[in-house]
Design a protein around this nucleic acid. Sequence first.
DNA 1: AAGGGGATTGGAAACGTTTCCATAAGGGAC
DNA 2: GTCCCTTATGGAAACGTTTCCAATCCCCTT
Lengths: 362, 362
Amino acid sequence: MRAASRVTIKDVADRAGCGIATASRVLNQSGPTSADARERVTQAASDLGFTFSAIGRALQSNRSMTIGCLVPSLVNPVFAEAVQGIQEHLFGSGYQLLIASSNYDGATDEKAVENLISNRVDGLIVTMIAPEKSEALAGASDRGLPVSLMFHDPLEGFVTAHIDNFEAARSVAGRFADLGHRRCGFLALRFSTSDRSRNRYAGFHAECRARGLGDPTLIELTEAEARDAAKLAEVLADHGDLTAIFASNDFLAIAVQRAAQSLGRRIPEDLSVVGFDGIDVGELLDPPLATVETHPQAIGRNAADALLSMLRGEAPTQRAPLPFSFREGATLGRPRARSRDDDRVANRPSSVPPLETKLNQG
Amino acid sequence: MRAASRVTIKDVADRAGCGIATASRVLNQSGPTSADARERVTQAASDLGFTFSAIGRALQSNRSMTIGCLVPSLVNPVFAEAVQGIQEHLFGSGYQLLIASSNYDGATDEKAVENLISNRVDGLIVTMIAPEKSEALAGASDRGLPVSLMFHDPLEGFVTAHIDNFEAARSVAGRFADLGHRRCGFLALRFSTSDRSRNRYAGFHAECRARGLGDPTLIELTEAEARDAAKLAEVLADHGDLTAIFASNDFLAIAVQRAAQSLGRRIPEDLSVVGFDGIDVGELLDPPLATVETHPQAIGRNAADALLSMLRGEAPTQRAPLPFSFREGATLGRPRARSRDDDRVANRPSSVPPLETKLNQG
DNA sequence: AAGGGGATTGGAAACGTTTCCATAAGGGAC
DNA sequence: GTCCCTTATGGAAACGTTTCCAATCCCCTT
């Protein structure tokens, strides 16, 4: 089948009875041409159904008009939406999107970046396991390839589209404190490989301290624990003293919510749960998940926008973090009134009545 | 910044003190070379950090090693997962994924395909609004470009990775009939532009008839109605006689579920709801959504696999539809026994106190 | 009428590969 | 010692563009 190999500009020129250069000028409107030539060339091009070969162009211009994008997985709606945001922002810019995913694997990550680079992308938009350790990424950036990060906190030498994880997490701790929670937990998956997760913990931790709650309990989950409701319930049971849990993402929060319910703990009466990301599903749950709402599509757009500006030759400038907001949901409430043996647990000053704080805020 | 423009194979050859051809042969292990030459060339290549230019290769081999993929939107997890499936199947094959999305717009669709084609992709994997009407797609296929469809039902001249929408929908109608439902509705969004939706309706309709239920009510929603809970509730109220609704996808089903609940109709006692796709969220709802469970990632893998086989030169062969299964959930039940004033109930069931619903839920 | 200038035009180089083909070198057999 | 064959090697073409530059053509000015 593979019929008449693609029609090239030479075919067009031949049919129009002119030189290649003229055909190129007409088709690109890139130089002086006579009305006559324009007529013949356009006619010939449409007769033949000619389209430019992006490859020929890329070779000669040394620009592929292609942008490489790497995310951990498209199954996670956060990343899928971000890519969609990039996609939409790029539409009409002439740039195409080459995409790769790593499945949260650091080695695949590195290889994928190398792949993208050897495809001669004009720029990169990535979310990696460890951008700060990627030699491929550093090398690319050093050689002048524009790079835009997504979700990562600011990193020396790169521009990133992100939300302020530290601040966002602080605000959650603040709410916990306002409501009178004293013993809070931070739940993380892949803690060691996610700068976002670590920064969220840092912010959460800082604010807990600042509000006199003492250090929150850091609970690191294995993949297995996160996936298996029974195991997660065990973990939860081990931390029965906690009255509020901040999960480093919504999926974890949802898992916690379900595991807790399966243990017979009511939410939020017995346990408050707050997630992070603000995926749509959260709102459909019963009770709806309280979470830090972010806008992945905006992150994608932002990253794409930053990259395009670099591609235009402008100096890379880090932009302000994107806004986040708190989605109230219904999984966050006051801790149950303490029983008498409460102080047994409390090694923290219980001097500040939660109610007061609350009032101050209003 | 844009430092020392990329190192080419010529640079490697120069440094190794040999000709370009030899360098190429060494690096590709594509011909006879002396141990000596091998040594010098590999050394030079690694010294210089050489990588092949995919563009140069593409130009000369007339193969871009790139596959174009078009889906309506990555925000819909069904498509995002399918793309992830493609992605994973392609990893290691040497092919890269160029991706585009149309936002459910037929014109964008067509343009996107043209874009991909002018990027000289070696093959296409697409889900379009109207593949049967796309000139770009037909043209590409005619010229011998391998094309793999996803989700679409079999279409003359193309290979598709799909599930049997007709059969799947029939099975839903069968369940409705088994449970004693007599008046069923089919809820669709973008009915006119979705062959999947139409085929599902066809199957549903056929089985309803076969089981003596009479024709199901076809309810076509506008985007606005689907998005706005209040409007959807109105629509639902207008069809108060229905005891079971089959929604053409899970998001619609979820919306129906919520709208019905807001009207005070209990699910499944007052209304049975079944969705389609089997997105994960459905299981988290209360009650969990009954749905036709499909596996988008498998569809993506399948499409990619079919495409790769065509790229290997094998004749395109349509494969069997992928399996689907029924996820029981808890939104499907027997219709309520009819009361005498049944027909009156149709509009505004204010008879049911919301509290009751609430209690039943606990 | 000749020269000059602007508007068009086409040849050819360059971009980075692969690969065909011819050449060179080395070794074994006569 | 010659010849032939095998093994290595490098030059050059081709892939589809864009663009520099020189050439041509026309028309206008002097």
